[in-house]
């Protein structure tokens, strides 16, 4: 009787350890919730200190942060568009606004990149809306990924000397 109990305890311990080891092995490296990151950093590479007032054709620097957690290699394109308060954009619809610049990156899973972005705005505008849209290459064509950022700015003409 006691022999049977010892056997049962040993068997139960072995089974629990085996199931745990198998589940850990099978789950390792599996991406449960794939997602992509896009972020905008100020000139000091920090969240904040964004330029709010710039002159026409003045070059200002920002940093674009991209991160890939999709579980596979990704080809990202970020379209920089210049819109205003009436520009419609959401997770399903990209902005119908002129593209002023474009940045691309290919990232393996689990990696990120910070890209310096130098921009110039060509004409004066009050409450200009600088939009950064994340697109990705799928089956040979670019598709809007539904992630976007915006920066409100005033663009003023330089004063005449």
């Amino acid at each position: 009787m006691i022999d049977e109990e010892v056997r049962a305890v040993i068997l139960a311990l072995a089974l629990v350890a085996g199931v745990f080891a198998a589940s850990q092995t099978l789950q390792s490296g599996r991406v449960v919730e794939p997602f992509s990151e896009i972020g905008l950093l100020g000139p000091g590479m920090k969240i904040g200190d964004y330029p709010r007032n710039v002159l026409v054709n003045e070059t200002f620097r920002l940093y674009l942060y991209l991160g890939n957690h999709e579980g596979r290699v990704m080809y990202y394109t970020v379209l920089v568009k210049l819109g205003d308060g009436s520009t419609l954009i959401n997770e399903t619809t990209h902005a119908e606004a002129p593209v002023i610049d474009e940045y691309e990156a290919i990232l393996p899973h689990g990696q990120n990149i910070t890209i310096p972005v130098d921009l110039r705005l060509p004409k004066p505008a009050a409450n200009a809306r600088l939009i950064f849209e994340l697109w990705r290459l799928e089956e040979g064509e670019l598709r809007y990924h539904g992630r976007w950022l915006q920066l409100w700015m005033n663009v003023t003409a330089p004063k005449a000397p």
Binding site: R72, V73, A105, I106, L107, P108, Q111, I113, L137
Partner: peptide
């Protein structure tokens, strides 16, 4: 680059480790 990227995606699907190759494409 886009053409080779598509090939890389397919290679990764077939089990290839494409990290170095992706960095070079970037």
């Amino acid at each position: 680059v886009r053409l080779v990227y598509q090939k890389l995606v397919e290679a990764e699907r077939r089990g290839a480790d494409v990290e170095e190759a992706a960095i070079r494409l970037n």
